[in-house]
Design a protein around this nucleic acid. Structure first.
Length: 805
DNA sequence: TGGATTGTAC
């Protein structure tokens, strides 16, 4: 038969638009290896079945027509056999061609289906109203707008573009290739709309992730007297899931019950999915428990739901139960759904086991699974594994690139992220909102305002120029790069602000120490009808803490529950401890920690440590440090801060002890560096740096500044420090700290009178903070230093942080 | 003669 098949195909290889021998072989191999989507199990065809009965002499052999046999082959997915038979038959009737195109399309051979249609036309068989919906379905499967439009053009020419089946197929095709405007036009211009037309449009909006339009369409359909069916319900529930709209979801659930669709397993799984996306796992569980029998989709929905709702252990338990109780093997979707749980638990071992399972079961390559693996490895800090998976992906799509980019950014691999972003830039697809939102924080981390501005200008020129999600990231980027004014400008010009926009701009003013403006913005936000959320109060409490507005801070803290029914979370407690630290009421701060309804985190103890340092309370600092190190044994910052406190108190033995501990644990102080932008380039300085081209001039300026302020530093320090000890013990002189070199360079490289902006990767030290205040006074220049925590605006000898940071 | 379009989990 193989020989005949080859001959048949070879014979046809001279015909334009036919299925070639090679393609046919691919079909057979694909079927074998399970590569083809929607593959049906290849049951024994009726020819064989009849022969067998005949041989046994049990049943009178029934004559089966070739047409019937062809249909049987197609229905069983045996496309090779179907094609062989087709070539043997007289195929002047469009019916047989339609059967073949249907078979090819339904078995995932979209290109071949379109080619078959081409051959049909070439051989002079007229494609009819049954052919076109199938051909359009093949174009949809290929996600090919070009092929789809070619067919559409032909339909207009032959006048079949009014057929309701054809129009429905075109609506679906346009929506699936993300051309929703074309889909809408198709739908609106239809003279007759049936239930499938409405369903296609409802689901079309879901395809482009526009849940609200889908729901509007769903209600409109009913207003026009069309009764929704299970397809309508499933799509509308998908829309609720997209918009996380529990209210509409519940309404549709009522509809489902009224219409008796609750027994439909697909409707049930759609309901479960909707409830889990709306964060109501309790409802999803109730439906799931009542479902019998359960299928893999239902199990997957639950596993994914638990992961989405941050219940990773439940997700694992559900996976185990699915295998034990129902004897289902995990499929690709199961793995995709459970991987975020591994990430949440930082369970690298489990993540790797899942990866191994996917390889063993032949589930890879699969672009979505590979993307999920990149995410998981990235969140577990195993970037080398993320890179390995990424490197092996064939035909990387934008989502894969975004996942790798996010993995770099999450792990602080900022330079790598920026390099990858530049590669994405030259790919044949356009970066999307996720790409920009991932890369923008990197610009602020690297103090690369130039890069950030370039991205901003690209966004403005593109259709993303009004995208709230990206503009929020841009506001944050400008604020963290020190350009608070530009951040405000972007905020003011935004067409669609959301609560995150307000939280971001309030936080921007907070980190720059402009608490009063943050308060004004908070009132404005409420006046404009935005409801403050948990994050708003993190911004407000941070703002009060940084700007030293203690009473206001208490007022906001108390109003959270009283006026907005928001329970303070651990973040809010952290801000309050910072605030209490300002009042030097350390006992109260300590009691606050003891009485809060959460287990204190290292961040909480860190706030107490900072407060202890500012009041010189070594005993309390030691207690806080002990707690921090029990939670994060490698917290370098904690060691450094404690060591500095010992040094300031002249406890040199303790300084040595901390130093030894750090060596023993293999920890190193973060190397401090300061950055200044000059001529769109970032100049980097380390302590005692002499690498800059203008180094002589920088040191000349530094000498003048040091002479002018030098005595003041030690006059101030004399009671606290012991200059003799300092001279002996401090290896690097604070006078040559990176931040001062950067300030000196900033002073000579910028226009007289303009502010000098310096970014620093670690907290500014007390000496440099005092020096910067003096420099701002004697040079009459504003000096802005953004350190790892806040922005210090030094003006006329004062700092915006009120000397507490 | 017959046949076609819409659907759950990523």
């Amino acid at each position: 038969m193989a020989a005949t098949l080859t001959c048949a195909c070879f014979y046809n290889s001279n015909v334009a638009g036919m299925v070639s021998r090679k393609q046919l072989e691919t079909m057979k191999t694909s079927r074998k290896s399970g590569l083809v989507k929607n593959r049906k199990f290849c049951k024994s065809a009726s020819l064989t079945r009849n022969r067998s009965n005949d041989e046994k002499g049990l049943v009178e052999p029934r004559a089966v027509s070739p047409t019937e046999t062809l249909c049987n082959f197609v229905d069983s997915g045996c496309m090779g056999d179907a094609l062989y038979l087709f070539e043997k038959m007289n195929h002047f009737d469009s019916y047989l061609w339609n059967v073949m195109i249907r078979g090819l399309t339904n078995n995932g051979f979209f290109t071949e289906a379109i080619q078959f249609y081409g051959r049909m036309e070439y051989e002079g068989v007229r494609a009819d109203n049954f052919t076109y919906p199938l051909v359009i379905k093949a174009c949809t499967g290929l996600l090919s707008l070009t092929e789809g439009q070619k067919v559409h053009g032909k339909l207009v020419k032959i006048g079949l573009d009014l057929d309701v089946y054809v129009c429905n197929s075109l609506t679906v095709m346009y929506a699936k290739v993300q051309c929703i405007e074309f889909a809408e036009r198709m739908f609106c211009e239809m003279t007759v709309r049936d239930l499938v037309s409405w369903n296609s449009m409802i689901n079309g909006f879901v395809s482009v992730r526009d849940g609200w339009s889908s729901l509007v369409c769903f209600w409109e359909m009913q207003a026009q007297g069309m009764k929704p069916d299970r397809f309508s319900m499933i799509s509308a529930l998908g829309a609720c899931s997209l918009e996380r709209c529990l209210q509409s979801g519940k309404e549709i659930h009522c509809h489902v019950l009224r219409c008796g669709f609750q027994v439909d397993i697909m409707v049930q799984t759609s309901l479960m999915d909707m409830y889990s996306k709306c964060n109501r796992m309790d409802y999803a569980e109730r439906l799931f428990d009542r479902m019998f029998p359960k299928n893999v989709v239902a199990w997957n929905a639950m596993i994914g739901g638990y992961a989405l709702n941050a219940h990773p252990l439940h997700s694992f338990a559900c996976l185990k139960k699915m295998q034990d109780a129902d004897n289902f093997s995990p499929d690709v979707i199961t793995l995709i759904n459970v991987l975020p749980s591994c990430a949440q638990l930082q369970a690298l071992l489990e993540g790797r086991s899942i990866h191994g399972y996917a390889i063993r079961k032949g589930l890879l390559p699969h672009s979505i699974l590979e993307t999920s693996l990149i995410d998981m490895y990235g969140e577990c800090g195993a970037l080398n594994l993320s890179e390995r998976v990424f490197g092996l992906i064939n035909g990387k799509n934008l989502v894969c690139w975004n996942a790798m980019l996010a993995a770099y950014v999450q792990n602080g691999w900022n330079s790598e992220a920026l390099c990858l972003f530049r590669v994405i830039w030259y790919q044949p697809f356009t970066p999307d909102a996720f790409t920009f939102s991932s890369i923008l924080p990197t610009c602020s981390e690297l103090a690369s305002l130039r890069e950030g501005k370039q991205i901003h200008s690209f966004v403005l020129k593109s259709e993303l120029g009004i995208n709230t999600f990206i503009l929020n990231s841009i506001i944050c980027m400008y604020a963290k790069c020190g350009e608070l004014g530009t951040a405000r400008e972007v905020f003011d010009r935004m067409l669609y602000k959301d609560v995150i926009s307000w939280n971001t701009i309030i936080m921007a003013y907070a980190i720059h120490g402009f608490g009063r403006i943050a308060v004004q913005l908070f009132s404005e936000m409420k006046e404009k009808g935005f409801k403050p959320n948990e994050s708003t109060f993190v911004s407000m409490l941070s703002s009060c803490s940084i700007s030293g507005m203690v009473n206001e801070g208490w007022e906001y803290y108390n109003s959270m529950k009283r006026d907005y029914n928001i329970d303070p979370g651990i973040e809010h407690y952290g801000c309050m401890i910072d605030l209490l630290g300002r009042t030097s009421n350390l006992e109260l701060a300590k009691r606050f920690i003891e009485e809060m309804p959460f287990l204190p985190t290292a961040r909480i103890w860190g706030s107490l440590l900072t407060a202890s340092r500012n009041t010189g309370n070594i005993e309390l600092a030691e207690l806080a440090a002990k707690h921090i190190l029990s939670l994060e044994h490698d917290n370098t910052g904690c060691y450094v801060l404690l060591s500095n406190m010992y040094a300031e108190a002249g406890k040199w033995q303790d300084v040595e002890r901390i130093k030894c501990l750090m060596i023993k644990k293999g920890l190193q102080r973060t190397k401090g560096c300061s950055l200044v932008e000059f001529n769109s380039k970032t100049c980097r300085f380390i302590n005692e740096d002499r690498s800059h081209a203008e180094t002589n001039m920088i040191y000349d300026v530094l000498d003048i500044i040091t002479r002018k302020i030098g005595e003041d530093i030690y006059l101030h320090s004399v009671t606290k420090f012991r200059p003799l000890d300092l001279g002996k013990r401090r290896a690097n002189s604070p006078q040559k700290h990176s931040v001062r070199l950067a300030i000196s360079f900033g002073l000579i490289s910028t226009t007289i009178g303009s502010p000098v902006l310096v970014r620093k990767n670690t907290r500014i030290c007390n000496d440099c903070h005092r020096a910067a205040k003096k420099v701002s006074e004697i040079t009459r220049r504003e000096i802005i230093v953004g350190d790892s925590k806040v922005f210090h605006h030094f003006r006329d000898g004062h700092c915006s942080c009120g000397d507490y940071w």
